[in-house]
């Protein structure tokens, strides 16, 4: 599946480098002990620009929600329509959210509430991309009305 390939910059390079080592890291503010993703130049909690450090996290999470894209503006994605875009809440702090396509999950059958584990896929030689895999189903899968 062709995806837009991320181009690291000074701010994001530590994240993408960690992906290449199959590690998930997020910024953590040592001043207010708050994690954030994607990376920013300052802490969105306390505004500090000097207290942000990269912190490795468990890579465990939960499916928070999903939508199904039927008509994408993104050229590389148009051949994949329709496709799932899920939100993953990080185990250490459910306020930290990640996007995922949950590879292998059928369209519009995403198990909201399921436990997931970070995984990494090669999108181009030399760059791995964060993805997530369902590791256990929720006890009661959410039923989505139209």
């Amino acid at each position: 599946m062709p995806r837009p390939i991320p181009v690291p910059d000074e701010l994001s390079k530590p994240f993408w480098d960690a992906c290449n080592e199959r590690r998930l890291v997020v910024q953590n503010c040592t001043a207010c002990n708050r994690m954030q993703y994607p990376p920013e130049k300052t802490c969105l909690g306390c505004g500090s620009g000097k207290s942000l450090a990269w912190r490795e996290v468990s890579g465990r999470g939960r499916v928070d929600d999903y939508v199904v894209v039927h008509d994408s503006r993104l050229r590389l994605w148009q051949a994949e329509q329709p496709y799932n875009v899920a939100l993953i809440a990080l185990e250490e702090d459910p306020g930290v959210l990640f996007l995922s396509n949950l590879p292998g999950i059928p369209v519009d059958q995403v198990p909201v509430g399921a436990s997931v584990q970070a995984d990494f896929e090669e999108v181009t030689p030399g760059q791995l991309l964060l993805e997530w895999r369902v590791v256990s189903q929720p006890q009661r899968p959410a039923q989505r009305k139209r």
């Binding site: 390939i5 991320p6 993703y37 894209v69 396509n101 999108v123």
Partner: peptide, 9 residues
Amino acid sequence: AFSNPWGPT
């Protein structure tokens, strides 16, 4: 780069 690779639109 933190959104487009997963296709939100």
